[in-house]
Design a binder for these strands. Structure first.
Length: 259
DNA sequence: ATGCCTAACAGAGTTAGA
């Protein structure tokens, strides 16, 4: 049995109490974090160590940043930082490490801001590079089981947003974004949550503003993607809403999966 | 409820997130 969680924490520094709370409550084997906003020299290794975890990180300072932590008993391989072909390698958005017989990848896809912005083109380019890397890893039959998890900043279908009408013309739902996300699935990855829960919305993000969380106005943009063999071992997948509530919550809920 | 989001950087207001 392997339990993992992916969580966009929106600053690891600001969210550390909630992260430690989650580790204590759920004790996941592997933790994939996004938006750590944390440079390497200030990464909270000591606090995670005291909680029973060790971690590898890929940080760029005040923005983005990803990390992967695992319980001390699970050895971490040599991390691979960055993604071949990504538009801006100075942004820390992709991190790979072998753990528990799995190649774990924590990914934070660029937001894209607006479809007519340069940032949107970078988002598409990043997704294309991710698709290329996934295809490479899936093709490599010697590779370990594959888990690609994180904040994709794309709602795969209209089922994954609270009101499709409200999102027409905005990022996260456009055909170009969805088409590029689809290439990861076509390369051989399975959307863990949607496989187990075909009908429920499964939102993972709600705007901080205007009470969106309490009004059910969310999006499903955080995903756990598994290679097909691993997906057959999928036992459970879902969020813990309590981490979107309480003191200083992230705007994303953690998404858990058990194999 | 004279604010209606949060975080970083800076040390106020701007930028970014999605």
């Amino acid at each position: 049995m392997l339990s993992l969680v992916t969580w966009n924490v929106n600053s690891l520094k600001a969210r550390l109490p909630r992260v430690l709370e989650l580790l204590d409550e759920h004790g996941p084997d592997v933790v994939l974090l996004q938006e750590t906003k944390c440079a390497a020299d200030v990464f909270p290794h000591e606090q995670l160590d005291a909680a029973g975890y060790h971690a590898v990180e890929h940080g760029a300072g005040p923005w983005a940043g990803v990390a992967i932590a695992a319980r001390h008993e699970l050895a971490l391989g040599e991390p691979v930082r960055g993604l071949a072909g990504e538009p801006d390698s100075a942004e820390a958005r992709w991190l790979e490490v072998e753990v528990a017989g799995v190649r774990a990848i924590s990914v934070y896809v660029p937001n894209g801001r607006a479809p007519d912005s340069p940032s949107f083109a970078s988002k598409l380019a990043f997704l294309e590079a991710a698709g290329d890397r996934v295809a490479e890893l899936v093709f490599d039959t010697a590779a370990a089981a594959l888990v690609v998890a994180g904040d994709f900043n794309v709602a795969p279908t209209d089922r994954d947003v609270y009101d499709p009408e409200a999102f027409i013309g905005s990022t996260h739902v456009t055909d170009p974004e969805r088409a590029r996300l689809s290439t990861l699935l076509e390369a051989g990855l399975v959307d863990a949550y949607r496989t187990l829960h075909p009908k429920e919305p499964g939102f993972t993000w709600w705007d901080y503003r205007q009470g969106h969380f309490h009004r059910g106005m969310g999006m499903r943009i955080d995903l756990v993607l598994l290679d097909r063999a691993s997906a057959r071992d999928l036992v459970s997948c879902g969020i813990d809403r309590n981490y979107r509530k309480g003191p200083k919550p992230s705007d994303h809920a953690p998404l858990f999966a058990t194999l």
